[in-house]
Write a protein that binds this DNA or RNA. Structure first.
Lengths: 203, 203
DNA sequence: TCTAAATTTAACCAGTTGGTTAAATTTAGG
DNA sequence: CCTAAATTTAACCAACTGGTTAAATTTAGA
């Protein structure tokens, strides 16, 4: 018997990933995925039962890819300002590689909030937030920073990192930027976002 | 001859708006829109030629609804910090009323960046940004704030206002918040976001 | 009341959708 | 080389898609 030849299966998954991220669950076409993988449509169903199933696999992969490292950095034992710099630079690094993931995740999660309840329960973010909050509280006590919740600070960090990238087409349109001007603006943010956040909370 | 009875036409548009915003262009169904409006599907085509056409009408309406007021506030003749507070509170006010619009606009613009080139050219945002930049430069000269471009500041404001609302399902999932906890967090931001921004740029 | 335009409908259509099926081909191991 | 499992295919299907058509009904004005 032929040993499971991963090449085909992975090729399909790879093309499916592109299709789903680009067009979403509703917009992606099984036929298109099959064509781009250079195989028959029935073969896609042979490997991945259904569109929904294939989508779920990909969605959970992308979701984890995006949040797995954040927890590590957030609970690391380094000074707060340094940590903020690290989170921002980690975010921007990932986002440069995979700029389409946040919109994809938010979109599909917004369409179906019940998706992916199982796999994520392992990553207990509560603990991570607690650790981060304790570190913040320490700095507040030392009068180094203003009072803020870990929740709000983390959301601010993510907002300032993620939004400018996921809103790219809107920003380009509203501010009438060329691709080059947009890229320059993002480059500038790599240097300035962390400083902006630190200034905002510093006493 | 019957005078154009707006009720039906507007009812269709209203249901189409809901459908498009909820499910996007690809996900929305003409039949579904007709059903929800309590009429026949052919009637939808009678009033609005095609799905694309109907979508374009709605998209442009929503886009303008979202950016029309921003220009006014940005070029108003009020102190910078006050202006920041006003922009933030305007944003959050609109977003509370129409929380789904940003995701909708970004999504569909991302799917088709060429959409809606005509109607938006009237609103020259360049001028607005220039005015805002001049005001910022003045404050910089007076040593009141740190140096920053109007572009970056505006993007920061929008990021901190819009992202937490459009990423709602993701934030709820990642931070494991109940609806109530999420709403409390948004309420808190209404008070804190403007202060956060002002602190970030203040000297 | 008559009529021509505006409105609304049921029935239909061709193309596309995700998915199935049964048969063909390839493969690894004995 | 045989064979049973794994892989791949072509052909098919029912449901659904956006859109059309021609006929029926309602409406306002003369």
């Amino acid at each position: 018997m032929k040993q499971k030849d991963n090449t085909t299966e992975e090729l399909i998954l790879q093309e499916a990933r592109k299709a789903f991220i680009q067009k979403g669950l509703a917009g992606a076409r099984m036929q298109d995925i099959a064509d781009k993988a250079g195989i028959n449509k029935a073969l896609v169903h042979y490997y991945f039962k259904s569109k929904e199933n294939m989508f779920t696999i990909i969605f959970e992969q992308e979701f984890e890819k995006f949040f797995s490292h954040l927890a590590t950095v957030l609970s690391a034992d380094i000074p707060l300002f340094e940590k903020i710099e690290q989170v921002v630079s980690l975010d921007i690094e990932r986002l440069s590689q995979f700029p389409d993931i946040p919109l994809f995740v938010i979109n599909e999660l917004s369409q179906n909030p019940g998706r992916m309840t199982k796999r994520f329960k392992q990553m207990r973010t509560e603990n991570v937030l607690d650790i981060f909050q304790r570190q913040i509280n320490n700095e507040v006590k030392k009068r180094m920073i203003k009072k803020i919740t870990a929740q709000q600070l983390l959301i601010n960090i993510q907002s300032l990192s993620v939004f400018p990238i996921m809103a790219k087409p809107m920003i380009k349109k509203v501010m009438q930027l060329t691709e080059k001007q947009y890229q320059q603006m993002i480059q500038l943010r790599k240097k300035e976002v962390a400083a902006f956040i630190i200034n905002a909370i510093k006493n």
